[in-house]
Amino acid sequence: MEKRFLPFTVPSWLKWVIVCMLVVLVLIFSYGVFLYNSIQEDKTKGFTQSKQTALSETALTKVNDIQRFHGDGFYHVVSGSTKDNKEAIAFVPVDDEKDISFFLTEQFVTEDEITTKWRKTCSDCQLVKTTPGINKGIPLWEFTYIDNDNRYVFAYFYMETGKSYEKIRFKTVN
């Protein structure tokens, strides 16, 4: 008599291959989650120390936001207000022994105003982000966007006047 298999019976070697593949997929997924969390944690590393430094060494009494900026150096941009409720920005250097740069923002062009002005010159561009920055002691607005020619662009504008400071465009390679 000939031995017959049920239609749903799978050879044992195939079961082991499937189990091994599932284990490998779970390990890869777990490593991806670990790597993502590690990168996100590294992006905010030092924010607490920069916040404390800005509060103790400048006129800031309240912190609203902290961002990163890489210009002529690496800075944590601490935005907040003074005891007089005036908005201000402190650029806390992270890697260098530079002094903290502190500015009251009442004399600056606001982010909304400069964004509106920028939109008029580049209406079809896709804005990625806007960040306060500093270069050689000059406070700037950094616009990161994709222009009409599909180039990644960094545009810098003076915070005091809103005039263009510099543009850096990256070509796409096809």
Rank of each mutant, 00 (worst) to 15 (best):
E2S: 10
K3R: 14
K3Y: 10
R4I: 12
R4N: 03
L6K: 12
P11S: 15
L14V: 14
W16F: 09
W16E: 04
I18N: 07
C20W: 07
V23L: 15
V24P: 01
V24S: 13
V24R: 04
V26Q: 13
I28K: 07
F29G: 13
S30G: 14
G32T: 11
F34W: 09
S38V: 00
Q40V: 12
Q40A: 12
E41Y: 06
D42F: 00
D42S: 15
K45P: 02
K45C: 01
K45N: 05
T48N: 14
T48G: 02
Q49W: 02
S50A: 13
Q52Y: 07
E57G: 01
A59F: 08
K62N: 11
V63A: 04
N64A: 11
H70K: 09
G71S: 02
G73I: 00
Y75I: 05
Y75R: 06
V78R: 05
S79T: 12
G80W: 09
T82C: 05
D84H: 06
D84Y: 03
N85W: 01
K86V: 04
E87G: 06
I89M: 08
A90D: 06
F91E: 11
P93A: 04
V94P: 00
D95R: 09
K98G: 10
K98M: 10
D99I: 04
L104T: 01
E106K: 10
E113D: 15
I114T: 12
T116P: 00
R119G: 04
R119T: 13
K120N: 11
Q126S: 11
V128Y: 11
V128K: 05
T130F: 06
T130W: 06
I134G: 05
K136L: 06
K136F: 07
G137I: 04
I138Y: 01
P139Q: 03
D147V: 13
A155E: 09
A155Q: 08
Y156G: 07
Y156N: 08
Y156C: 09
Y158L: 15
Y158A: 09
K167W: 08
R169M: 14
R169I: 09
F170Y: 15
T172P: 00
